[in-house]
Design a protein around this nucleic acid. Sequence first.
DNA 1: GCCAACGTTGGC
DNA 2: GCCAACGTTGGC
Length: 152
Amino acid sequence: MKKYWLIKSEENVYSIDDLKKDKVTAWTGVRNYQARNMMRDEMRKGDMCLYYHSNSKPTGIVGVCTVAEERCIDETQFDKNSEYVDIKSKIENPTWICVKVKFVSKFKKVISLEQIKQDINLQNMEVIKKGNRLSVQRVSERDFGYILNLNN
DNA sequence: GCCAACGTTGGC
DNA sequence: GCCAACGTTGGC
């Protein structure tokens, strides 16, 4: 059963254009247990993700990617030169597990947070709920399909 | 840069 | 286990 997600990235850190160029990337640097648990326990190869830019103008959904590989070790936790290093994490039992995502498409136009807030059909999306800072969120199949249609 | 809304840490 | 202090996220 394919599942649908929304994943956030700061545009100036790793944008949809970076993913388009790299084709596949490990979704490293997530240091929130709830987000990790979703990646580790629920995200599976073939699942589809909306790609969301935070800290951008405007913020919003900018494209689509797919889970290319599941349950990957986030290597940045063992990299002493990385800002994401976690000295408490053990090689034999890594704390941080992520997925690899593959570029699928970039939208013609950003579907902005403002637009989502105003769309009566998208009021169940996590991303518009107050205080929701999770960088990995579940999206319903219906909302995912609706958003793809908005891009047409 | 501000600040609300979190999540994490650590003393007790 | 509680909770104050602190750190982070992310919209604006």
